[in-house]
Amino acid sequence: MYGLVNKSIQELITTNFGEEKWEIIKANSEIEIDYFISTEPYDDSITYKLAQAASIELGISVDEVLFAFGEWWVLKTGNEKYGGLMKAGGSNLKEFLINLPLFHDRIMLIYPKLTPPEFKIDEIEDRSLVVHYYSKREGLVGFMKGLLSGLGKLFESPVEIFHLFGRENGDDHEAFKVSW
């Protein structure tokens, strides 16, 4: 993952819990990187170690850490750093989610070494749809739920997210029903 991801985790922790808590989490993760460079790719294991250390230090599950980070990513990082791209995705939640498969195509122009997930959208109804999430990375169900929740908040459309199926049951991807 790019350094921007790890920097965003750092911002989430320092904003909500303080710099001292971040230093404890970073030390407990045993990561020996002083500063993350936004445009530099880092091994995924660094992000997972940070999430695990935050889980232990904050006394919450890794899924809860990833959920909080997913919301933060949309509401803070994504909105502040990619506001134009976010707005280009749609004027409401439904439009944005329908256009989600194209979003990472635009992001890859900025981060050419990105290994993005793929999204497919189906079962589109008036107030719900199904998001299919394909990624080489495992263990990010909580993050994906947080992203979807954050998008609901961004578009002022409270959402219900139901994890329909996923890799833990032998499927090749995750699927989420999103209702608003």
Rank of each mutant, 00 (worst) to 15 (best):
E64Y: 07
V62T: 14
D34F: 00
I60M: 12
I60K: 13
D44R: 12
E57R: 01
K26T: 04
L50S: 01
Y42I: 03
S55Y: 07
K26Y: 09
K26R: 14
S55H: 06
P41N: 06
I31D: 09
S45I: 15
W22E: 04
I60V: 15
Y35A: 09
V62W: 03
Q52S: 13
S45F: 10
E30K: 12
E57V: 14
A27Y: 07
K49A: 15
I56A: 11
A54F: 08
E32C: 03
E23G: 04
Q52C: 06
T47V: 10
V65T: 05
D63I: 03
D43F: 10
E57H: 04
P41K: 09
Y42A: 05
S61Y: 06
E64F: 08
P41F: 12
V62A: 06
Y35D: 14
T39S: 14
E23H: 09
Y35R: 11
E32W: 05
E40T: 15
D43E: 14
E30T: 12
I46P: 09
A27E: 13
I56Q: 10
A27F: 07
W22H: 05
T39A: 11
D63Y: 02
L50M: 09
Y35P: 02
D63P: 10
Y48S: 13
Y48C: 07
V65G: 01
V62D: 06
D44L: 14
A53V: 01
N28D: 12
I24C: 05
E23F: 02
P41Q: 11
L50F: 02
A27T: 13
D43I: 09
S55I: 01
N28Q: 11
A53D: 01
K26D: 01
T39G: 13
S61I: 02
S45A: 15
A54G: 03
V65F: 05
I25N: 02
I33W: 09
E30P: 01
A27N: 10
I24W: 01
W22I: 04
N28K: 11
D43Y: 08
I31H: 04
